[in-house]
Amino acid sequence: TELRLDINGREIKVDGADKETLKELLKLAEKNNDEKAIRIIRHLLER
C-alpha cells in the first residue's frame, strides 16, 4: 500500500521516503499542527 499525506495542500508520498525526508515532512506537519500527519511520520521514523 502507498501512504500519502496531504501536507500544506500538497499530497506527499511518505512510505519509502528516507529519514531526512521524513524529518523535513515532520517539521512541515508540526508547523501546520497536523496531528494525524505528525503521528504517522513519527511512527515511520521509529521503524
Rank of each mutant, 00 (worst) to 15 (best):
D18M: 04
L25A: 04
K36P: 10
R10V: 15
L5F: 11
D18G: 05
I7W: 06
L28I: 10
E24S: 11
K19C: 05
L44T: 04
R47W: 15
T21W: 06
L44I: 09
A37N: 07
L28S: 04
I38E: 04
L44N: 03
E46A: 09
K27W: 08
L3F: 07
D6F: 15
I7F: 13
I40P: 00
T1Q: 10
N8D: 11
E2Y: 07
D18S: 07
E11I: 11
E30Y: 12
E30R: 13
E35P: 08
N33S: 09
N33K: 09
T1H: 11
K27P: 02
E20I: 07
L5H: 02
A17S: 14
R39E: 13
K31N: 10
T21M: 12
E20T: 08
L44H: 10
T1R: 04
L3R: 02
I40W: 05
D6V: 15
T1W: 14
L28R: 05
L26R: 01
N33Y: 07
E20P: 05
A37D: 01
L45K: 00
K23V: 06
D34G: 01
N32K: 05
D18H: 04
K27I: 12
E24G: 09
G16W: 13
D34S: 05
D34K: 01
L26I: 03
L22R: 00
L5R: 01
K13M: 14
E46F: 10
A37I: 06
A29H: 01
T21I: 10
N32L: 15
V14I: 09
E35Q: 11
E2V: 06
I12S: 02
R47S: 15
E30P: 00
I40C: 05
R4A: 11
I40D: 04
H43A: 12
I38T: 06
T1L: 08
R39V: 13
E2Q: 08
L25Y: 09
K27Q: 11
G16I: 15
E46M: 07
K23T: 08
T1I: 07
R42N: 11
T1V: 08
L25P: 00
E30T: 09
D15K: 06
A29T: 01
L22D: 00
E20S: 07
D6R: 12
L5T: 02
T1F: 12
T1M: 08
L26M: 08
I40Y: 07
E11F: 09
V14C: 03
T1K: 05
K36V: 11
N33L: 08
D6L: 14
R10C: 11
I7Q: 02
G16L: 14
L5M: 04
A37K: 01
D18W: 02
N33E: 09
K19S: 08
R39A: 11
L45M: 05
D18P: 03
K13Q: 12
K27A: 11
E46V: 05
R47D: 15
D15R: 05
E30N: 06
R39D: 10
A17T: 13
I7T: 03
A37T: 05
D18R: 03
R47M: 15
I12M: 06
L28W: 13
E20Y: 06
K31Q: 09
D18F: 03
N33H: 11
R10T: 15
D6E: 15
L28F: 07
K13S: 12
L45A: 01
H43E: 14
A37Y: 04
L5W: 03
I41H: 00
A29K: 00
K36W: 08
G16V: 15
L22M: 04
E24R: 11
D15S: 09
D34Y: 04
E11S: 06
D6S: 14
D15T: 08
I12A: 02
E11Y: 08
R42A: 07
T21Q: 14
L5A: 03
I7V: 07
E11T: 09
R10W: 14
L26S: 01
R10A: 14
E46L: 09
A37E: 01
K13V: 14
E30K: 11
N32V: 14
I41Y: 02
L26E: 01
R39W: 12
L25D: 00
E11R: 04
N8Q: 05
E20C: 07
K23W: 06
E24I: 13
G9T: 01
I41R: 00
L3S: 03
I41D: 00
L3V: 15
N32Q: 12
R4K: 13
I7P: 01
G16F: 13
L25K: 01
R42F: 07
L44A: 10
K27L: 12
E20F: 07
N33Q: 09
N8L: 07
L28M: 11
E35G: 07
E46G: 12
N32P: 01
E2N: 06
V14A: 04
K31A: 14
A17M: 09
L5S: 02
E20W: 07
D34L: 06
R39S: 12
T21D: 03
L44C: 04
I40A: 05
N8A: 13
N33C: 09
D34T: 02
E46N: 12
K19M: 13
L26C: 02
